[in-house]
Amino acid sequence: MTAREIFDNLKAKFGDAIGEAKLDALQPWITVAEKRAKEICLFLRDEPGFGFDYLSCLSGVDYPDGKLGVTYHLFSMNHKHKIVVKALCTRENPHVQSVSAVWGTANWHEREAYDMYGIVFDEHPDLRRILCGDDYPGYPLRKDFKVPEFYNGMKVPY
């Protein structure tokens, strides 16, 4: 299925929840409402025509315009087609619905995005930091992150 067909299908089903899309990009992507991510992803996974059963990658991104976002790279084992789905959220209220109930693999990826960008995944079963220590200040991959001078009273070199 081409990206255009996927987009039209989604638009017909979810209407306003499907935002802007870039279908002529190197790898076409579709934006979805961050509060309805789970519902839309479930549809993408279970709808026979789509069958996106394989979540290749889930990445947090800090966009130049100040928004935070999550990018899902989906793939279908049966139909061998792929699509990129994005969910954007604001820096002040970084909440995105968790898709870990749809794809088990999202569990750790979302924890990583939370750890690095501070994006809170609602309904996530176990949202803890995963790579940084539990007491690490701030979210290191945000573009406005400053390396703290002291960590737990120890001077950080450089």
């Binding site: 990009a25 190197l26 790898q27 992507w29 290749s56 990658c57 990445s59 991104v61 990018t71 790279h73 990129v84």
Partner: peptide, 20 residues
């Protein structure tokens, strides 16, 4: 400007790089 996710088969499995 653009973004791309490319994956390849490393010995451990799907190694992907998402480059913006």
């Amino acid at each position: 400007a653009g973004e791309v996710y490319v994956r390849s088969e490393s010995p451990r499995g799907e190694l992907g790089f998402y480059v913006i």
